Computed example of a mutant assay.
Amino acid sequence: MSIKISILIPSYNSIKYIKEALKSAVNQTFKDIEIICIDANSNDGTLEFLKEEQRKDERIRIILSDKKSLGYQLNLGFKEAKGEYLTIIESDDYARLDMCEKLYELALKYNCDIIKSDIMHFTRREKQYKVISYEANLYNKILKEQDKIELIQHSLIAYQGAIYKLDFIRKFKIKANESDGASFQDTGVFFITLSLADSIYLHNEALYFYRKDNENSSIHSKEKIYCVCDEYDFIYNFLNKCDKELMKKLFAVFLYKKFKAYWWNLKRIDNKFKLDFIKRFALEFEPVIDKLDKNFFTNGEIRELKEIIKDPENFYKRYKSPFFKLRKKGARLKRKIKSLFKNDK
């Protein structure tokens, strides 16, 4: 059998969800696949389940990881994959059964390094459609070098629901950050792949289901304070080593995505860590405050960053105020209304 797509499923103690994830891979309507399960020596029955399923389906391979690191596991999968393309299904998510078929058809038609679909966020109670790009004009066409900055600026961080040319991954020796556990490594893979790809195609249909209510997910770990910082350090160092001129071109949008990620992280982490993180925020943005591009940052965002840098402790006091939260809600509503008017034109 000629392997067209390698499906990577990294796992660790995922018995609650792994059956649904693996079932969605095994039952893909597209059959020219291999399924590589990279397990970090689970002790909750996950590994035993995978071995049992492997006995039923010769397309399943199991690789044991000696590190409990999503990034390390992904890198093992990148190394072992044999397909023309690869895709990732996380062990608490699942793919639509025609995901590989639809994405591979687009790959044959457009021959891009990355073919990427929208995704569906879901919990036990509801589903919510999420676009990969907030700009409709970026869909259904081949995106090239001139589109990268706009694409990165307006995209949801998600490496899922996509297929990547394996030759592209290996040409640039693309890797995930090998930090401990599941620690937002999708951030690095997302930014690096979009930055280095020669061509990208966005498909406006949700083909991947991303679980939002797994209590063990890294997004719910309020004590993972600086993992986001580690990811942006990893992105900068990787791209700077790979292509310094490209990193210079992308530096303005890199700072913008980093700022947005740090702000998101501030809201996410436990209250007892917020002041320390604000100080880290100030420390990292002080050297670049004069390099922020107003094509990305609003005047209000730059003003807020200057306040954080000038006096982190005073900013933290303001941040805790209910009036601050009300002002933020008002600003978000204003941006939403502005966006709606923009899209109606």
Rank of each mutant, 00 (worst) to 15 (best):
S2D: 14
S2Q: 11
K4G: 03
I9C: 09
S11M: 03
S11Y: 06
I15R: 12
I15Q: 09
K16W: 01
L22W: 07
T29A: 02
I33N: 01
I35H: 05
I36T: 13
C37P: 03
N41A: 10
L47D: 11
F49S: 07
E53G: 10
Q54Y: 01
R55C: 04
K56T: 10
K56N: 15
I63E: 07
D66M: 03
D66W: 01
K67A: 14
K67T: 12
Q73V: 06
G77V: 10
K79L: 14
K79S: 13
A81D: 04
A81I: 06
A81K: 01
A81M: 14
K82D: 05
K82H: 05
I88P: 08
I89A: 07
E90C: 05
S91R: 05
S91Q: 09
Y94I: 10
R96A: 12
M99L: 07
K102W: 02
E105R: 09
L106Y: 00
A107L: 01
K109L: 02
Y110R: 00
I114G: 02
I114Y: 03
I119Y: 03
I119D: 03
E126F: 03
K127Q: 14
S133E: 07
N140H: 04
N140S: 10
N140Y: 08
I142F: 00
I142S: 04
K144L: 14
I149S: 07
E150C: 04
L151F: 02
Q153W: 00
H154G: 06
L156Q: 04
I157D: 00
Q160I: 08
Q160E: 15
I163W: 01
L166Y: 05
D167C: 01
E178I: 12
E178Q: 11
G181S: 11
S183K: 06
G188L: 05
F190Q: 03
T193L: 08
S195P: 01
S195Q: 12
S195G: 11
S199V: 00
A206S: 15
Y208V: 02
F209H: 13
D213P: 15
D213H: 11
S218G: 13
I219P: 13
I219K: 06
H220T: 13
S221A: 15
K222V: 14
C229S: 12
D230H: 15
D230F: 13
E231R: 11
Y236E: 15
F238K: 10
F238E: 11
L239T: 07
N240A: 06
M247A: 05
F251S: 15
A252P: 09
L255S: 09
L255N: 14
Y256L: 10
K260N: 10
Y262H: 04
W263L: 04
N265W: 06
K272H: 04
K272Y: 05
F273R: 02
K274L: 02
I278Q: 00
F281N: 01
L283I: 09
P287I: 01
K291W: 00
D293R: 07
N295Q: 05
E301Y: 07
E301Q: 14
I302L: 04
I302T: 06
R303W: 08
K306E: 15
E307L: 12
I308K: 00
P312H: 00
E313S: 12
F324P: 10
K325M: 12
L326T: 14
L326Q: 10
L333D: 06
K334L: 13
K334R: 14
I337C: 08
I337S: 07
S339H: 13
L340M: 11
K342F: 12
